[in-house]
């Protein structure tokens, strides 16, 4: 969603896909993430160590891929929406240099205790169309009926 443009509960259609986000993680980004997140597991920046651990090379932090899905969600809900719940399953490894396509689909919309909520299925796909990260989210949106 473009900055300043707001999504409302009434705009959401069950079964529709949300705007996808394509990310291109690089090894530089993995180092930036290690620093910013405090996750210093060497499988994310030390190739020799990663190989010794039986990995084909350094891998993208699961939580960084999760943050890409977070970016997609916060873009979609706009400034007045927010994310109440986020569940993520790290299904496969992602590698720097490979694009990750973040996607989401609206499962249902409902009103609970006066809150306008939307449940989404979310996932990230590698270039082989393998869903390496899957999850669900519950987001809260403003309603056009709010005064």
């Amino acid at each position: 969603m473009a900055v300043g443009k707001q999504l409302y509960y009434e705009d959401v259609v069950e079964g529709s896909n949300i705007t996808q986000l394509i990310k291109q993680p690089t090894t530089t980004q993995l180092v930036m993430w290690a620093g910013a997140s405090g996750d210093y597991n060497a499988i994310h920046y030390d190739k020799d160590y990663a190989l010794k651990q039986g990995l084909p090379g350094v891998i993208v932090h699961g939580q960084l891929a999760g943050a890409f899905l977070g970016q997609m969600l916060t873009d979609w809900v706009g400034d007045k929406g927010n994310i109440s719940k986020l569940s993520l399953s790290y299904k496969g490894k992602n590698f720097p240099g490979e694009a990750l396509t973040c996607q989401g689909k609206v499962i249902k919309k409902y009103i609970e205790e006066n809150q306008h909520l939307v449940t989404l299925r979310i996932w990230a796909e590698n270039p082989g169309e393998e869903k390496t990260l899957t999850g669900t989210a519950v987001v809260r949106l403003p309603s056009k009926s709010d005064t």
């Binding site: 910013a36 999760g66 399953s89």
Partner: peptide
């Protein structure tokens, strides 16, 4: 941003759990 909170303490908690470089730690779910 949304995922910021998930990193508070997590790296430290994992390091306290497993400090042995011979042991592999992977993330399963959040």
């Amino acid at each position: 941003s949304l995922n910021f909170v998930l990193t508070l303490g997590f790296g430290k908690i994992l390091q306290d759990l497993i400090s042995d470089p011979e042991i592999t730690v992977l993330h399963g779910s959040t």
